[in-house]
């Protein structure tokens, strides 16, 4: 089975979804665009608007206007309901349905992100101040979970690169370490059970600086044109579409620029199962799951998993010369 991967140069179709809410939003956008056309505000339709959006609206609030992205796929979207009820977010429990049931206790505002380490502008930043200067884009990406299932999700966000630029990493900054909120009152899954903690909290992830500044890497604040629901990592999360889902850390409170690769949660938990890179790779199996195929949620037959989750044209060069069976 071949999955068509759109090159950045291609124009993406706007007729992509079967989801009612999404259509509603689209209709609204089109209406808004038509109205604006009189004032020749057509950039919205052309997808080049540097629109400033307010992502501080409560969950479910609409984010607009949104620019479209040449990096989006035209594959069929997974339904909003599936994306928001089938989550791995162990801070709220280990069942796929737990985050949707328990994430109500997370307070997504006010929210700050602590920036530290090898950069020119360390400090504690208010989230909205971080988001505001960026044009919100819609990025429709494949998400491949290490458990061999996948979805297609219309994220809303902006390139991580923009934020990184703003903090001014020094020449010593080779990696970025990220951390999720640590607060068992808001995140009941962080309370140890009879058998101890399921992971060592807070959740930690990391990227090499060139991965972090790759144009595909985004910080997401929404999906389906709406403010990110708590269970999907509100108020702000990473999305790195060529890596297994667990690399895309949720509810970020800290970013640190460092010289050495940072410890990462699943790697700490089981180093032989989860590597630092965790690039989607059909040729390197997880001890418990074959990674050759995946089930796209909503489909019956499994499909072959693509190298780098189908983003090889864009990212393979980041790893040239590396042995990916060793650096899994």
């Amino acid at each position: 089975m071949l999955i068509k991967v759109r090159k950045p140069s291609e124009v993406r179709s706007s007729e992509i979804t079967d989801e009612k809410l999404f259509w509603d939003r689209r209709r609204f956008l089109r209406g808004a665009a038509l109205a604006a056309a009189a004032a020749s505000a057509t950039p919205l339709l052309l997808g080049s608007a540097a629109a400033r959006a307010d992502a501080s609206a409560p969950t479910g609030g609409k984010l607009e206007p949104l620019a479209k992205s040449p990096y989006s796929t035209s594959e069929k979207l997974n339904a909003y309901k599936d994306i928001t009820t089938y989550n791995n977010f162990y801070e709220f429990g280990t069942d796929k349905g737990d985050p949707a049931s328990h994430a109500g206790s997370l307070k997504a505002r006010p929210w700050t992100i602590k920036v530290s380490g090898e950069c020119e502008k360390p400090g504690v930043y208010d989230l909205d101040d971080l988001i505001k200067p960026n044009a919100l884009e819609e990025r429709i990406y494949r998400l491949r979970c290490v458990e061999a299932w996948s979805m297609v999700i219309p994220w809303v966000g902006f390139p991580l690169k923009e934020v990184v630029k703003r903090f001014g990493p020094t020449s010593k900054a080779k990696y970025i370490a990220f951390e999720t909120l640590l607060d068992a009152a808001q995140m009941p899954g962080q309370r140890p059970s009879l058998f101890g903690s399921v992971l060592e909290w807070p959740y930690r992830e990391g990227l090499r600086l060139d991965e972090a500044t790759h144009p595909l890497t985004i910080l997401s604040v929404g999906l389906y044109g709406k403010v990110l629901p708590n269970q999907n990592g509100a108020p702000i999360r990473l999305v790195v579409p060529w890596k297994y889902g667990f690399k895309s850390i949720k509810s970020i409170v800290a970013m640190r620029f460092i010289e050495q690769p940072p410890p990462t949660s699943w790697n700490m938990q089981a180093p032989q199962e989860y590597g630092f890179y965790s690039n989607v790779n059909p040729n390197v199996d997880h001890p418990r799951w074959s990674q050759k195929r995946e089930r796209r949620l909503g489909e019956f037959l499994k499909r072959p998993t693509l190298m780098f989750n189908g983003y090889g044209d864009e990212v393979a060069k980041l790893y040239s010369g590396m042995d990916l069976t060793k650096n899994y």
Binding site: Y90, T94, F195, V198, L199
Partner: peptide
């Protein structure tokens, strides 16, 4: 027990 990722409470 062997198939769970890290939460062994159920098989336990």
């Amino acid at each position: 027990l062997l198939l769970v990722k890290s939460d062994i409470s159920s098989p336990a």
